[in-house]
Amino acid sequence: MVGGVVFVLALGYVAAALRIPAPSTGSAAGLGPDVVPLVIGLALAAASAALAAQGLLAARTGGGVGGGSPEDAEERPENARKLIVVAMMLLGYILVFIPIGYLLSTFAFLLAATTFLDRAHWRRNVAYAVVFPLVVYLVFTRGLQVQLPFGILGF
């Protein structure tokens, strides 16, 4: 399964590599800009095809090794709902980071995520969501001279 997905992606990469234009100033000796990407793409396609084949073979003989299933059977797998919600919160945080500024967006992200994951300790969560961005903001803007977005707070 995984091998198949990577294989399709590898073919897409090869197709894109084939469309790399030739340089305007041609040189006789030496490689053009498309050769190395093509080699990488073809190797990737070959390796993923081998992985897919390995997976199919293992599935036929009944062994679970190789292709599809998650490799390390950890005792505590991720909870899919939590994973999706946290990932979406992260995406939301990224999208509002510049428009509303570092302090506000970080406060909102930390508060939302920690509350979602652990509602019982809400006082602790609020305190964390206030203190963490403030400390980081001061360290970066004052100590390291890296400007962070002000956003709508205007400071």
Partner: peptide
């Protein structure tokens, strides 16, 4: 798995090819 390590390595190589080729200034991928 050696095959998976190889694929991961090729993935890294592939990502690195994105951008303007420094030698010919051709846009790649």
């Amino acid at each position: 798995s050696r095959l998976k390590a190889l694929i991961a390595m090729l993935f890294g190589l592939a990502v690195a090819t994105v951008g303007i080729d420094p030698q010919t200034s051709v846009e790649r991928l």
